[in-house]
Simulated assay, not measured.
Amino acid sequence: MPTAREIMTPGAECVGAEDSVLDAARKLTDLGVGAVPICGTDDKLKGVLTDRDIVVKVLGRGKDPAQTKAGELAQGEAVTIGADDGTEEILATMTQHKVRRLPVIDGHRLVGMVALADVARSLPDAKAGDLLEALSTD
């Protein structure tokens, strides 16, 4: 089975916890991605900000994206996967935490992101279908 390092998108760029959600949205647009890791001034991963978070937690609640900090949307400790963890561990982590994207960590350093699509491409169809079903149910 392939490892996270083999299937991830390398070079993930963080948005700062003190950056505005508006700046984060611009970064998502510029990078052409649906999620970006949130990093603190200590260079530690604080969470992941998704385009859906911006719509539901900021715009949908009438908050000003220029005044709301990205770090305000980080919830608890970030769910991550190790760079050398295999697809079974990725599947288990995504399923357990109901997430479609995982930051990939090598030691304490962010080295990339693994998305549901990356995992699906590396798995037999049946396992990919099981993951999608698990993430699509409440």
Rank of each mutant, 00 (worst) to 15 (best):
A78D: 03
R100N: 02
V99Y: 04
G86T: 10
L91Q: 11
E133W: 03
E72M: 11
T93A: 07
K57D: 11
A17S: 15
T9K: 00
S20W: 07
G47H: 08
P2C: 08
L49E: 12
E89G: 01
A78G: 05
V56N: 07
Q67K: 15
D30A: 15
A35M: 02
M1N: 08
V33A: 09
E133Y: 11
L110M: 11
G62A: 09
A24E: 05
M8L: 10
T93C: 04
E13G: 00
V21M: 06
G76C: 06
P65S: 11
A17P: 02
I38Q: 05
E13K: 14
M113G: 00
A24P: 06
A74T: 07
E72P: 00
Q96M: 07
A66T: 13
L135F: 02
G47W: 01
T87G: 01
V55T: 13
D85N: 13
L45I: 14
L31A: 12
A35Y: 01
K44W: 02
A17Y: 00
V119N: 02
Q75A: 14
D118H: 12
D42T: 07
A128K: 05
A78P: 10
Q75M: 05
R109Q: 14
E6Q: 15
D64M: 07
I81R: 03
M113S: 05
V104Y: 01
S122F: 06
D43W: 09
G32K: 10
M94S: 03
D43F: 08
A25I: 08
G47L: 07
R26L: 14
A70G: 05
T3K: 14
A117W: 00
D53C: 06
V55H: 02
V104R: 00
A128N: 05
A25F: 07
A83L: 01
G82L: 02
L31G: 01
A115V: 06
V36R: 09
L132T: 13
V119S: 03
D42H: 04
A35R: 06
A24S: 13
P65T: 12
G34F: 04
A17V: 03
D53N: 12
R5T: 09
P37Q: 07
D85S: 15
G107Y: 09
I38G: 03
G112L: 10
